[in-house]
Simulated assay, not measured.
Amino acid sequence: MAFTSDNVLLFLAVLDHGSFSAAARALGRVPSAVSMAVAHLEAELGLPLFERAGREPRPLPAARALEPQARQLALQLRELDAHALALTQGLEERLTLVIAPELLSARWTVPLAALAAEHPLLDVEVLAAPQADALAMLHTGRAQLALVFERPRLDGREAFQQVGEETLVAVVAPGHALLRQAGQAGGLGEAHLVRTRQVVIAGRDAGVADARVVFGRHVWHTDSPEAACSLLEAGLGWGWLPRSLVQWRLDAGRLAELPLRSLDNHMLLCVDVVWSRERPLGLGARRLVEGMAAMRAG
């Protein structure tokens, strides 16, 4: 193998500095060693790389042709060294973030992009799971971080950082009977919601749902926000859904907000990134939590 990590860096140094002596100073070597190493590389390749007729070596077309791949390899070597150092400092081999599906449209990709720029070789896994399932994944160690709504009760096993807010709105299909009842009654009360089928996004384990958003006696469960929207658009019930998820459907007339009389049709919930106190966070997870918090503060 002609190219090695050492002579790739040396080859690029000669290209960047324009002479063997300048490259030698940059690398902390003597000029004769650099010149001999380049000559050895040319012999191994069977290909001249530099024209030596003048005072300084001039790159030949072959050297320019090899330059892009050499620079890519040098970048990969630097990333590999940085990744190895980060692993010694506590960087995870893999970072798993699980997100409540209602929050997939939140701005979690921005701090994740910053983390990827800082640690480009970090293996990241992003999963979507209903909130109860996402929190269960934390406690089993399947995921290190969960992006979820605030919990009705605090769990001593969990630590968290608030990173945003989300507004839930009660919506229904435009032709649903609830809207006709609202017109007749001058708005809807809790009794109307209780006796009408409700569509709820919940965990897969026995339909575990947030009690704060469950009003109906007859409840259908799904673990998918898109499925919930489809059920509501089909007129099969009403539901509380994030405004970021349904706004375009409201604008298009595919869903309508319920005119509530005795309740506020805007439920503001905090959005938290949560982790287990029983497992220390690695470097990547800490950086991601800091990035999410900084984005909210900014």
Score class of each variant (00 low, 15 high):
140 T>D: 02
98 V>Y: 09
176 H>T: 13
159 A>S: 12
75 L>M: 13
81 D>V: 15
76 Q>R: 07
68 P>N: 15
104 L>K: 09
95 L>R: 12
99 I>N: 03
117 A>I: 10
141 G>R: 04
69 Q>W: 11
54 G>M: 10
155 D>K: 00
66 L>V: 06
51 E>D: 05
119 H>S: 04
102 E>K: 05
76 Q>P: 08
138 L>K: 01
141 G>K: 05
93 E>C: 09
158 E>N: 15
56 E>W: 08
158 E>L: 14
138 L>Q: 00
125 E>K: 02
108 W>Y: 04
129 A>L: 05
91 L>R: 02
65 A>T: 04
133 D>Y: 06
109 T>F: 03
74 A>P: 11
90 G>W: 01
120 P>K: 08
153 R>N: 13
147 L>I: 04
98 V>H: 01
159 A>F: 14
61 P>Q: 13
121 L>M: 09
125 E>H: 00
113 A>R: 11
145 L>K: 02
57 P>K: 12
63 A>H: 00
172 V>N: 12
91 L>S: 04
66 L>Y: 02
142 R>E: 08
135 L>M: 07
146 A>M: 07
51 E>T: 08
69 Q>D: 13
171 V>S: 14
166 E>T: 12
65 A>N: 10
127 L>K: 04
134 A>D: 00
62 A>R: 05
149 F>N: 13
142 R>H: 13
108 W>R: 07
162 Q>C: 03
144 Q>F: 03
131 Q>M: 03
71 R>L: 07
77 L>D: 15
86 A>H: 03
70 A>L: 06
66 L>D: 02
167 T>L: 13
160 F>T: 01
77 L>P: 13
146 A>N: 03
177 A>S: 07
153 R>G: 12
131 Q>K: 06
149 F>E: 12
67 E>I: 01
158 E>R: 11
158 E>H: 15
154 L>E: 14
131 Q>V: 09
115 L>D: 01
168 L>S: 09
176 H>W: 13
135 L>N: 04
101 P>K: 11
173 A>C: 06
77 L>N: 09
86 A>T: 05
